[in-house]
Simulated assay, not measured.
Amino acid sequence: MPIIKSISGIRGTLGEKMGEGLDPVLIVQYCLAFATLLKTENKKKITVVVGRDGRVSGEIFESLVVSAMRAAGADVIQTGYTTTPTLEMAVIMSKADAGIILTASHNPANWNALKFFNKNGEFISPETGKKLLELIEKNDFICADEKNLGSISYDDTFMHKHVEAVLNLPIINKKAIADAGFFVVADVINSTGGLILPILFDALNVKYKIINNSDYGKFAHNPEPLPQHLTELSSEVVANKADLGISVDPDVDRLALICENGEMFGEEYTLVAAADFVLSHKIGNTVSNLSSSQALKDITLQKGGKYYASAVGEVNVVNKMKEVDAVIGGEGNGGVIYPELHYGRDAV
């Protein structure tokens, strides 16, 4: 399979010939290049947050990332298992200079990827991504001497802090949710959704059943949240008479819902439903990419706001949201971005 290089990172399949997939050499090169950029721009000791989703290859690749960043002189805060939105928030909470997560999102288990974030916990800009690729092409990296190697610390508290930040949002009525007596079934596909969703449900007094939460990294089905991949979740919702079925992808930045009758709500309507709720509390502008449903535009205009379309790609959606001061935005793949929390897709 080909390697897919983009401005926000690199992804590819495992087990290929060197240079034809995601291999250890590429991972080290990308990390050294990223550290070089950070050191060049900051002119000081830098700190980077590093984490991974539940993929089997994640532990090995994470060790490479941590070692490469420390060899370049960066201090590392290692989270271990995490979600993409949690790592984005961890960068902000720890006041780090950047973040790196190992996740190939909705791609199958034989894929993995490096995704890079700036000090705001957002995907690096196209300009930074271009500089990163230029350094890799030139093999031009800065490494530290023995007196300036980076340190390492461990912090596994960020998921709890992430959930706490969500629940402290003024728009969230914790009492109403707790009093409703909801029962939900969640498919976490043997990845880190199985760690963060129980924290959320317990805090909201929501009863729940988690499926596919045992053999981490061995995905129970194709991670893409399409109806044909969520038949088990649909059956469990009906069998357990649940109020809702919840499906998250391996790094928990996309959300798809199953109705109480077992029918799929459709990931393209996740953002629409969230926007309907947000706009009911605060009228404002919305943004989605050009591949998203027309429904977001319709409901935004109905509520009295203005809708704007962006180019495809999370970084483009975020930039447009900032430009038009959007109250909510995202993508038609189940990715919701709520600026009151942070500028990143977040299923939590």
Rank of each mutant, 00 (worst) to 15 (best):
V76S: 13
V336W: 07
V28L: 00
Y308G: 07
D298F: 12
L226I: 13
E267M: 09
E314W: 13
Y154C: 09
K241F: 05
L14T: 01
I136H: 02
I196Q: 05
E236P: 03
Y343R: 03
E122Q: 14
K131D: 01
V163I: 15
A275F: 10
A113Q: 02
N319C: 05
V324K: 08
D298S: 13
N42T: 12
I4R: 14
F61L: 12
D202E: 15
L87R: 06
I171K: 04
G304F: 08
G332K: 10
K119L: 04
D187P: 02
H229G: 05
R55Y: 05
I7M: 13
R55C: 10
F219R: 02
L167W: 11
F182K: 09
N168P: 07
A178N: 03
N118D: 14
F219S: 07
E137N: 10
N285V: 07
E268M: 05
K207I: 10
Y307H: 15
N112T: 00
K115F: 03
S292D: 12
E16G: 00
V28D: 01
G99L: 01
K297F: 07
G19H: 06
G344N: 08
L197E: 05
E260C: 11
L195W: 08
A144N: 13
S214Y: 15
A104W: 02
H342F: 04
I189M: 04
G51W: 07
H221L: 07
A311D: 15
K131N: 10
T157P: 06
D215I: 13
N316K: 14
E20N: 08
M1W: 04
F183N: 09
A256R: 06
L226Y: 06
P24F: 10
S234A: 15
T86C: 15
N139P: 08
D251I: 09
L195S: 04
I46R: 05
A144P: 11
W111V: 00
K174R: 10
L22F: 09
G73C: 11
R11Y: 02
H221V: 12
H342G: 01
P170Y: 01
V317R: 10
L233G: 11
V91F: 02
E314N: 14
V28K: 04
F158G: 03
E41C: 02
Q78P: 06
V185W: 04
Y208N: 11
L290Q: 12
I101Q: 00
K174F: 03
G284V: 05
K115T: 03
T86D: 11
F277V: 12
V248T: 12
L22V: 05
N139Q: 15
I3L: 15
L204P: 11
V185G: 02
G305F: 09
T128A: 05
L37D: 07
G284M: 04
M321P: 13
S57C: 06
N173Q: 08
G262C: 09
G99H: 00
D187K: 02
C143Y: 11
I27W: 05
G12K: 00
Q302C: 08
G129V: 01
A178G: 03
P24V: 00
N333A: 15
A144Q: 12
T286V: 10
E16W: 00
S293A: 08
A220N: 14
I46E: 06
N212F: 13
C31F: 01
F141D: 12
D75V: 11
K218T: 14
L26C: 00
N289Q: 14
I46W: 04
Q294V: 14
S234D: 07
V206I: 15
A104T: 00
M93P: 00
